[in-house]
């Protein structure tokens, strides 16, 4: 179908700066398609993180704010509280969300802030040159774990989706991936759902996307996909971890 290849209106017509085999481009497209399908481009504010996606606003065409490292959920809270009519999403990597910004994401999720977080987990710091992330796998070599992540020093990688789903408040927490075409439709549906829940004024939603970073992993793009499937996916299982209909009794989430 020709439709599949049409450029979403919310996506600028220009090549990205991302490395070959990087998944940011695909995820940008899925977000842009979602914005188009919901017809919300004119009332959407994105928050770009510190990380490889710091320039996300060069590709996604809507209002944007640029966050300090880790602070996107606090900024989204600020926007959404004073302008509940706007659609707000944060786009964050694993260093941003799971390390320096862990406090902000947990509290925003727990307050049930009505925004959507796209969390790109590629198990490494991309922007600063391949350092260890909280989601780096055991024995995975990075520029700050040259002998591999030692779990006795760094602990086990953080499963963000499971961690946040331990909170009662959040509406929707899911983990998907875009590393092969066969996963993309599900990821798209999850992003669409997360934005829809926001429109319905349900509490916080987060879509974790297991991703690749061939450049910093030191692999060719096909090797990176294979490694993600063999090593990341078993540890980071795909699927919904929390849906809005669970815990209805306790959670303050309400439809309008």
């Amino acid at each position: 179908m020709a439709k599949t290849f049409q450029r979403p209106q919310a996506l600028f017509d220009q090549p990205t700066h991302y490395c070959p085999g990087c998944t940011h481009g695909v995820i940008h497209r899925l977000v842009a398609e979602t914005i188009d399908e919901l017809g919300i481009r004119g009332r959407t504010v994105g928050i770009a993180p510190v990380g490889c996606a710091v320039l996300a606003y060069n590709y996604i065409d809507c209002d944007f704010q640029e966050a300090a490292h880790g602070r996107a959920p606090a900024m989204a809270t600020g926007i959404k509280r004073v302008r509940p009519d706007l659609m707000v999403f944060t786009y964050q990597g694993d260093g941003d969300l799971a390390s320096i910004g862990m406090g902000e994401i947990i509290h925003a999720a727990n307050r049930g802030e009505k925004f959507t977080t796209i969390f790109v987990n590629n198990a490494i710091y991309g922007m600063t040159g391949g350092q260890m992330a909280p989601t780096t796998m055991p024995n995975q070599r990075t520029s700050t774990s040259p002998f591999g992540r030692k779990t006795e020093e760094a602990g086990m990688p953080i499963r963000v989706a499971e961690l946040l789903s331990a909170l009662v408040t959040p509406a929707y927490v899911t983990r998907q991936t875009v590393i092969r075409p066969k996963y993309i439709q599900k990821a798209k549906k999850a992003i669409l759902k997360a934005f829809t829940y926001q429109m319905e004024k349900r509490c916080f939603s987060l879509v974790e996307l297991v991703s690749t970073c061939p450049t910093n992993w030191g692999m060719t793009p096909p090797e990176a996909i294979q490694w993600a499937e063999d090593v990341l996916l078993p540890y980071y299982p795909l699927g919904d971890v929390k849906t809005p209909d669970a815990d209805v009794k306790e959670a303050p989430c309400k439809t309008k």
């Binding site: 600020g78 926007i79 509280r81 004073v82 406090g103």
Partner: peptide
Amino acid sequence: GVFLQGESEVAVAYMIFGAAGAGVRV
């Protein structure tokens, strides 16, 4: 109006940023 007790002064500074960036007095 909007009243929110943030989780830290660090977060509050960026709540202010977000709200100011959205064009309201904060």
